[in-house]
């Protein structure tokens, strides 16, 4: 029946651990599907290693048929950096949330980017801390109510949402690949992931993809409202697209596509 009524799971997914552990409506599943497809299409299952952070991303610790390590909060980038330095032939993927990448592990993101570490970092932006119950994150939108901003985030007190890819683009050289995708465009996201991985395969440099994602559980939104957040509201703060593409990756038939936009 598979392939007729529903599209097949990526080959690199571990079937035994499906259905996955994320909440209904969570964006992680879509992002991880796009990642699985990118791994399949590039034929990386035998050499890719997946590192996941603390927070909801840790639920992916047994998600793939890939060697996987679940690390500490914010520390997935250094674990993958250490692995890549020791085993350059592996394709090392650091998967984290916005708290892990932009708050507690920000120094690792900044320095790995500056050193042009040849890993691929993927950061899921759902505007708050999901696993701990919905506190303010660096990415929380102005006015957004969270458990630690119950009256809405006041930019006077706590600033504006972190512009992660913009920051990474600013501190990296021309060998880096930087993009922001969205779970609303999984086809485009898959292509972004493929380029981010290709940049590592080529041994060129640091790759970073932020993913606009959804957390209906903590946003307390229904399906319609959730998609309005993802498709309309979040892109007003977080511009979707490629910010930095090394010359060698341009025009190689992996141009951004959005044929799967719902």
């Amino acid at each position: 029946m598979q392939g007729i009524l529903q599209p097949p799971m990526p080959k690199s997914w571990r079937k035994e651990t499906k259905p996955h552990k994320f909440c209904p409506g969570c964006g992680h599943g879509i992002a991880l599907k796009a990642l699985g497809q990118a791994i399949d299409e590039l034929g990386l299952q035998g050499i890719a290693v997946f590192g996941c952070d603390i927070g909801c991303s840790l639920l992916a610790w047994d998600f793939f048929d890939l060697d996987t390590v679940q690390t500490h909060h914010g520390r997935t980038i250094p674990v993958m950096v250490g692995l890549k330095r020791a085993r350059p032939e592996l394709i090392c993927i650091a998967y984290m949330g916005d708290g892990g990448g932009y708050a507690i592990g920000a120094q690792h993101l900044v320095n790995a980017a500056t050193r042009n570490e040849k890993i691929t970092a993927i950061l899921i932006n759902n505007t708050q801390y999901g696993m701990t119950g919905g506190q303010m994150a660096p990415t929380t939108l102005p006015g957004q109510k969270t458990e630690t901003t119950p009256y809405g985030r006041d930019p006077e007190l706590t600033g504006y949402p972190t512009q992660g890819p913009e920051m990474v683009a600013a501190i990296t050289d021309e060998r880096a690949y930087v993009a922001r995708g969205t779970v609303a465009r999984p086809g485009q996201l898959r292509e972004f992931f493929k380029r981010a991985l290709q940049n590592q395969i080529d041994g060129r440099g640091f790759s970073f993809v932020e993913v606009i994602s959804a957390c209906p559980t903590n946003w307390r939104t229904n399906a319609k409202e959730t998609w309005e957040w993802v498709e309309k509201l979040m892109p007003t703060y977080f511009r979707v697209g490629e910010l930095k593409v090394p010359e060698a990756l341009r025009g190689k038939g992996v141009e951004a596509k959005d044929e799967e936009t719902p």
Partner: peptide
């Protein structure tokens, strides 16, 4: 000996190495 990046394709030639501390 490696924990991660052992020989063979995980899920095809061997089970994947899944390491966690949670």
């Amino acid at each position: 000996e490696p924990f991660l990046g052992k020989p063979g394709v995980p899920g095809v030639d061997r089970p994947p190495g899944h390491y966690r501390n949670t």
